[in-house]
Design a binder for these strands. Structure first.
Lengths: 133, 133
DNA sequence: ATAATAGTTGCTCTATAGTGCAACTATGCA
DNA sequence: TGCATAGTTGCACTATAGAGCAACTATTAT
């Protein structure tokens, strides 16, 4: 049950950003949940950036996030039912420069590293890791 | 045929504004075209404001506008087909504070003044008229 | 305990979006 | 021919959104 009502504009505002659309579209098409590090490797974007966008999607009621130890799994929210219609639209959008296709390809590769369906490795793309001095 | 490809984000950006959602929702639910002055009286917003929002919707590929004498009629674009799905979502959105319902009520009343299906009067809400000194 | 790492967030900066006012164009009517 | 009016747009102002950096928390493994 959702106590505070989310404004319709907020919903569309959440999708009005390329990075967030890539996240949503990936989760819609792959029909899977994903943790941040898997998204970092799939979208090739820094974790702090994705973390913030995930928060915006969560606040818009599109995503639910569950912590499991070190990892946080993000999945699409499917209620209320018009969200399913919305995801159908997202899935039907053109992929002019094959960005989504490339994201999905990396994601598919990446989740092959899961053990028992759970993520067991961190960020693999060296250039996206945050180094602790 | 659409020569320049509209980015998916642009589509959602266009809907990420209360005024523009009111316009789209009104046209979806009423299943009618409307001219600016009818929209001004229905949404109770100044014409310069709506005119700009209509332009944004047009540029996003959601609206087509045709001039007929003094009046410009705006109608929803239905191609490509995922736009229909998008409108279905818009129609299914909650109307918490009955804003859309009130807009529709005023619009229904307003288009009763048409003659032969065409708008024959201008802005009726005195407080929204732009006075020429 | 300590180090490594998954993830988050405060801060600053820059770009862009929305508003209102006022001036503008274009069309029809007296 | 000139006026009223449907509609558009340049300008200035303000608010907000997104990015990057760096510091932070929390959890696991050694």
């Amino acid at each position: 049950m959702q106590l505070i009502t989310i404004q319709p504009e907020t919903l569309f505002q959440a999708l009005a950003d390329e990075t967030r659309l890539r996240i949503i579209r990936l989760l819609v098409v792959a029909d899977k949940e994903a943790c941040l590090c898997e998204l970092v490797d799939s979208l090739q974007e820094p974790s702090y950036k994705l973390s913030r966008h995930l928060k915006i999607l969560r606040q818009a009621g599109l995503l639910s996030s569950q912590k499991e130890g070190r990892w946080v799994y993000h999945r699409l929210v499917t209620e209320p039912s018009y969200l399913e219609t919305l995801y159908a639209t997202v899935q039907a959008l053109p992929d002019g420069d094959q960005v989504y296709q490339a994201d999905l390809a990396r994601f598919t590769e990446r989740i092959r590293l899961r053990e028992g369906g759970r993520c067991r490795v961190g960020i693999l793309s060296d250039d996206l890791k945050v180094e602790n001095k």
